[in-house]
């Protein structure tokens, strides 16, 4: 199995790991968003959704472990790549200008990544690793977003997710080699639509809650 790891350890292999785990997160986030949309259907619908979800039990745990595994890989590989890339140019340019290739997304990947990591940890602490006895998930959301700085931070973080994904999604396809002249433009547009949907879909929740409660 050495060959398997050797390939993953190479520069392109590391990119592959970033791409695959990143795509995994995109899948997760889609499901997560789909679920969260129940919130717009009202308290009951949302709580019911949460109950149903948790009733899946071991499946959920397995998926959670999978996500954790992906996260560890994504973060560790990302950090390694970041470090190696800095080392690849020990002396920097005095003047540095873009030729128009980079986007806000691509430029900020490592930094948006760090913000996301912090956000995910906080988010989990707030909504996952909390004592949920005697409360409903809707209530939890309500009380958390009642703190306006937190709601703001949440919106900010969701925008960061959108930016991260705006580069990440097409980039993942490019990395795994799925760059076809006919389909790449579609993938790129889809990526933009996807990131905007995520931004709006998640970002609107605190606003919705603030307005409607």
């Amino acid at each position: 199995m050495n060959w398997f790891l050797d390939i993953l350890r190479s520069s392109i292999g590391k990119k592959l790991m970033m791409a695959v785990t990143g795509l995994g997160f995109c899948g997760f986030i889609t499901a997560h968003l789909a679920g969260n949309l129940f919130i717009y259907n009202g308290k009951e619908a949302f709580n019911l959704y949460a109950e149903r979800l948790h009733s899946l039990g071991p499946v959920i745990t397995a998926l959670e472990l999978g996500l954790l595994f992906f996260a560890v890989i994504h973060v560790l590989t990302g950090v390694t790549l970041f470090y190696q890339n800095i080392m690849a140019r020990p002396v920097r340019y005095v003047v540095n200008k873009s030729a128009g290739g980079r986007s806000i997304g691509s430029r900020t990947m490592p930094y948006s990544g760090v913000i996301l990591l912090v956000f995910v940890v906080l988010h989990l602490l707030d909504f996952h690793f909390v004592d949920k006895t005697g409360t409903t998930i809707y209530k939890l959301v309500e009380t958390t977003f009642a703190v306006s700085w937190y709601a703001l931070f949440y919106v900010f973080a969701v925008i960061v997710v959108a930016i991260h994904v705006s580069h990440g999604l097409w980039s993942a396809f490019q990395t795994i080699g799925a760059n076809h002249p006919k389909y790449m433009p579609v993938i790129k547009t889809a990526g933009i639509i996807f990131s905007i949907s995520i931004g709006i879909g998640f970002g609107f929740i605190p606003i919705y809650i603030l307005i409607f409660t």
């Binding site: 790549l81 080392m87 980079r102 980039s171």
Partner: peptide
């Protein structure tokens, strides 16, 4: 060989293509 020589990793910034 490329990895051995200490080049960085592509992060799909597209600057190379533009330049």
């Amino acid at each position: 060989e490329m990895d051995r020589l200490g080049f960085g990793n592509c992060t799909n910034e597209k600057e190379c293509e533009a330049e």
